[in-house]
Design a protein around this nucleic acid. Structure first.
Lengths: 200, 200
DNA sequence: CGGTTTATATAGTGGTTAGTAAAAAAATAA
DNA sequence: TTATTTTTTTACTAACCACTATATAAACCG
């Protein structure tokens, strides 16, 4: 065992509590007293373990991306269509134990100047997710799964936008079935959006 | 003229300044010093004229809805398809003089407990806009403009979700052309989503 | 045991938040 | 002019924000 007094709390458990708070109240909407109370620790313990509020948030972000990727990585679906289904249904099928919507959207769409770095980090992570989707569609196109007329970058952007719209609706209290119907409609449109020619 | 010392600032001008701030930084991200500085007035003048921060925000919301309705009321388009086009292109075609995205989405997706009433107000206004869209589609269906297979409530929800996704992208700095392409894809899917039968 | 190291709890720090008390200023009314 | 009404400016409040200095407690090593 490492020397020194052992930590009296589990970091992953505490991180989960922080994650849930940031997810529901947003980065700026979550105060340190909210955090310390939910995590069951005092401020000095939080700062010793996670650096500061922004550091804690970034680690909560990492945990979110990791656990989401483990649970429902849409990118591993065998077909492009399957990827789209898994993505949209994944967002629409909210876990009642978890806050609704996507953390990357909920945490900070707008914020004060002092949190600009956090807002930019979220923009980058959203773009990163969209890029991963685009690369998956590019692969599908190379493999003949998507027709040459399809535009991977536009498909990825469109699906990301839909998932964000579902996320906003989810955070507004819209029920799972209604969210699913949004996903259904987008998927019903799937064949039509595989042709990226100017108009149809 | 009314008796008493006349107000030294124009309320609509000041409201426009406040609106822009709330639009870019969000409700909680905008501080009173931000507001008084941008509006060019002192705190007591602000409180005398608008009540308090939440009152100011609500009046900024009213002004936003009013000016938006005047400039680009998508509901007045002659056809359901035209309504969808006007709505999506209206959100995608960001005014470089104005903050990107939709105020109803930007101002407060998540917030601290002390601003829950504001968050709920925004949820209600978003739902109100969706309801107005649904009613417009119901009318279109009665008039034969939309087929009996179409679901006005689902169409309205789907289009609202898309516009919110465009709004999130716009607030992330995505350019107008890319936003337009999202709208284009949704409109390309228009014929496909007019049939609300289970699967296709 | 003593010495070292790390985490803890207590109690605070300076700065910012939304909101205000009080008095002076600028208009009308008589 | 004087009285009245309303706005403006200045200075301020209490509460909360993220964060920390200090001392103590709990583990290890030798």
């Amino acid at each position: 065992m490492a020397k020194g007094r052992p930590r009296a709390f589990d970091m992953d458990d505490a991180l989960d509590k922080a994650l849930k708070l940031f997810w529901t109240k947003g980065y700026e909407g979550t105060s340190l007293s909210d955090l310390t109370q939910a995590m069951g620790i005092n401020p000095p313990s939080l700062y010793a373990a996670f650096g500061n509020k922004e550091g804690l948030f970034r680690q909560a972000l990492d945990r979110y991306m990791g656990e989401m990727a483990g649970g429902c990585s849409a990118l591993n679906a065998p077909t492009a269509r399957g990827v789209a289904e898994a993505l949209l249904y994944g967002v629409a099928n909210v876990d009642p134990e978890m806050p609704p919507g996507c953390l990357l959207v909920q945490a900070a769409l707008s914020c004060s100047d002092s949190s600009e770095t956090v807002r930019q980090e979220l923009i980058d992570r959203r773009q990163g997710a969209e890029d991963a989707l685009r690369e998956r569609f590019e692969r599908a196109q190379r493999e003949g799964d998507l027709p040459p007329t399809a535009s991977p970058v536009r498909l990825a952007r469109f699906l990301t936008a839909i998932s964000q719209g579902i996320s906003v609706h989810a955070a507004s209290g819209v029920g799972r079935q209604e969210l699913m119907e949004i996903a259904d409609m987008a998927l019903k449109a799937w064949p039509a959006i595989l042709d990226s020619s100017p108009t149809s």
